[in-house]
Design a protein around this nucleic acid. Sequence first.
DNA 1: GGAGGCCTCGGAAGG
DNA 2: CGAGGCCTCC
Length: 773
Amino acid sequence: MSDYLSHLNPSQLKAVKQTKGPVMVIAGAGSGKTRVLTYRIVHLLKQGVDPFNILSLTFTNKAAKEMKERIEKIVGLEAKNIWMGTFHSVFAKILRYEADKLGYPSNFTIYDSDDSKALLRRIIKEMNLDTDIYKVNIVQSRISSFKNNLITVKAYTNNAELKTQDDAAHRPQMGMIYEKYVKECFKSAAMDFDDLLLKTNELLFRHPDVLHKYQHRFHYVLVDEYQDTNHSQYLIVKALASLNENICVVGDDAQSIYSFRGANIRNILNFKKDYSDAKVIKLEQNYRSTQNIVNAANSVISNNKDQLDKKVWTSNQLGELIKVNRSTTDSEEAVSVASSIQETKLREQALSQDFAILYRTNAQSRTMEEALRKRNIPYRIYGGLSFYQRKEIKDMMAYFRMASNLRDEEALRRIINYPKRGIGNSSIDRMTLAASEQQKTLWAIVGDIKNDSVGLNSGSATKVDNFATLIKSFQMMVAEKDAFEVATYIAKQSGILREMQVDKTPEGISRFENLQELLNGIQDFVNQENEKPEEERNTSLSYYLEDIALLTDAEKADEDDGDHVSLMTIHQSKGLEFPYVYVVGLEENLFPSQMSLTARVDLEEERRLFYVALTRAEKRATLSYALTRYRWGNLIDCEPSRFIEEINEKYLDINFINVKSSPRNAGNRNFGSNYKTKVPSRYNTSKKKEAPKQDSAPRFIPKNLKKINPNIQARNYKEQTYSTGMKVEHDRFGVGVICKLDGSGANKKISVNFTDVGEKTLLAKFAKLNILK
DNA sequence: GGAGGCCTCGGAAGG
DNA sequence: CGAGGCCTCC
């Protein structure tokens, strides 16, 4: 496959061939971003670059996997040697290799966010702090943001501003919690997700030799979704690339929707400042959506101030207008979506999988689900608990973690009395106290309970000792047996399997099946390892844990569960595309979210989220809102989202509204009595908003639009004047000539003689004819 | 030590 | 409204 370059348009080609020096690729929605990244790597390999010298970073395992597969398809097994993976997995690998330099064992545990939450909860409790003020979620995200900005405990202590912020928020003990949290993690030989990046920075900046080594290893660095990088990731990338400066970042500032988890849109906006000789290549041709969708999306995003200049366009067909639907209640909204799906399936011979329903919050899925179920439309709700977050899996994994790292205190606490073995809270509290007094790990006390430094009664001590003996036997086995043998042994000996088998409720059976699934997965892992050459082979349970610690999602995607409508949050839909997309709940305080209304940057992010939602659609986008909605059990009144108003009206089809006879003046559209035409000025912070509306669309449309009949482009919901003899076009019936007009107003009828289907009589208000001449 | 009732609180979610 | 943490009572 040597003609791979011929599949690219000029900008894509440029992005692929510009392999030297810093390059930023701004990839508009649907512009073939993955194709460029893939081919760029293929191109490097074809030029003779050693795969070991290429570092390619993504945010999700899925993205990494897909890219690897695509490259492998073209260049073969050579692709396996590329350093390709998520930030976290690549740097976890490096950290394990260099762990001793940071005082960690190489088999350190990775705490997921539940583990860190549990630890924080314990710390806050131990410090006797008010849990209403020191809420775990707040503390956790605060510490996360410290770490993502490289603010260590020491740096925090020296930072008066942060201290002042926390004092002002009535959380003066934040620094102390942070300190204890970091110490506990270290004591447990554990790193949380943020540590994987923070410690990598530490490693690279404190050990110039290590930095030097990896700078020389990675001749070429590629970063996908650069707009999603946080400061910590930014610094790592910068450090690694600073020697060769062969760095290529790909992203779209307009799709930056993750600031709430630390992503810093400045990284992409400032790339040119960081690398003065950077080449910026824009992929502006959209291959996914119709012109109406692309133009509507452009008109919305132009309301944002913080953005890189680009003009997304498409040569696809004009397509349908964006539909806007209003319902009285949220359940009516769901019914109207479901019936529209059903109708479209029949009329356009579409499959269920051609449809997606996108919403701002997960809570909105329920009404949608009910409506779909009533009509027997198959659907799948994405999101929710992933496989590895299930209790039964986490319990089992906690045993594995203990067997591999005895210092893992969160795992120990999770299983010391599960299944029930009579070790209660008072025993655990006593041992915890002893551990802290003697400056030992909790396991050191548990594993040596017979030496009686704790003062448990003999019955409790025996129970603890039996537990310790059990864990020790697991640990010994890890060194000798393969992961599957150890895992099945643990499942039986720990009593978990027995516990599962007894429970015959549907939930219990499902838990048992999940456990089986986990064991099957471990068997697969062992089999795969056994296929490798002996020197690369590692079938141990510890290695299995390393392998899957960062897999937060079970690979259920390929477990194709057939033709279904997809229900998901807009965040989850990023990167996906569907012929028909329904964006529901377009209401003020829901979308945009109420929490985004106080700051311009937050509102802009909501707008980007809306942009992402719109640009998922290939053929048709339908927006909807309800006038009332149940929220936390209460019925509340809603107003349509400002985002609907921000779309240039000529791309909208809101013909369902009882249009009053009064003429609408431009820029002051009337969506019905409940529509708020004026947004409160304090929200109206974007300067660009004042620009005349009609500008936003054509400005973004390049030459090729001229091929399109301007009359078609001008089509909108406004009443059109028809006369006999006019040549018109209908979506379904094709081209024809008007032969008769009847009635007036709402009852106005038009008879058209269509070339293909003969004469048809249509109601003018529903006909939506394009006047051709 | 465990079950069940009370209370609180609610955003989006990658690794 | 519903999930999950916490507390009380047995």
